[in-house]
Design a protein around this nucleic acid. Structure first.
Lengths: 124, 124
DNA sequence: GGAAGTACCTACATTTTGGTAAGTGTTCAG
DNA sequence: CTGAACACTTACCAAAATGTAGGTACTTCC
């Protein structure tokens, strides 16, 4: 006999309370997507990520990595050596998201010329 | 005779100063991507967008629409009627970006169960 | 006349985000 | 012995994002 699927509420990013909003906000945070895309090249160490992602601070990289790990998008491996040696790679879910974020970012890179590039404006 | 392509610097999101970073930040801002995805259903009025996107305030919707318009991703049409009637739709570039953002968001919706959903943490 | 809808804008206050600088403990290069 | 690298953490502060509330000018509904 087959069980019917449990009546989970369907995820919906347009719903303010849907948990998908939280994941989406982490991925599309200032550094989240960039970290994911950087890790598409394979396993990288903290300082390698830091050098690769222009403009990120240590604080933000550490924090972003923690959030992404808690979301199950990357996994952290500590080699237990001294001086410290830690590296990160994408999980399956992380890869799925990274490739999609990459396609978004890459389209923008490739089509920058067709876009207006106004400076951001603040809301005061 | 063929001209060689002008030596434009190649866009690169990993470069902190690349203008693609700005567009990417608008698209992946809290509301930017959601507005774009909402407009995939066709032309929508301000208040329709507001009702569709759960949790957005009038102020943020207005501001997001302006930024996206300046980026060339949506176009605004004012019918010049009274009471006001204004609607928005995606440009070609907007569609290209919207579909990619949608695929990202949709994958997350569809695979929420495989992801950890921790509350965000602040940096102070 | 009063309330609600339309598409916004503005001032103000708060929340969130992010940077800087300093500190930790160890190892290695010079 | 000094300085740098490693992978972080913490405290403090500034900047950016966002919400709330109120206003505008007009129309329609009751």
């Amino acid at each position: 006999m087959q069980q019917t699927d449990p009546p989970l509420p369907v995820a919906d990013v347009f719903n303010a309370d849907c948990p998908s909003r939280m994941i989406l906000s982490h991925v599309s945070s200032r550094w989240g997507g960039l970290v994911l895309v950087a890790l598409r090249d394979g396993r990288l160490r903290f300082s390698e990520l830091r050098r690769r992602i222009g403009g990120i601070s240590e604080r933000m990289l550490a924090q972003t990595l923690q959030v992404l790990e808690a979301d199950g998008l990357i996994s952290r491996r500590d080699h237990g050596e001294v001086p410290p040696r830690v590296d990160y790679c994408l999980t399956e879910a992380g890869e799925a998201i990274a490739i999609r974020y990459f396609e978004l970012a890459h389209w923008i890179e490739a089509n920058l010329g067709r876009l207006g590039t106004q400076p951001a404006q603040s809301g005061g």
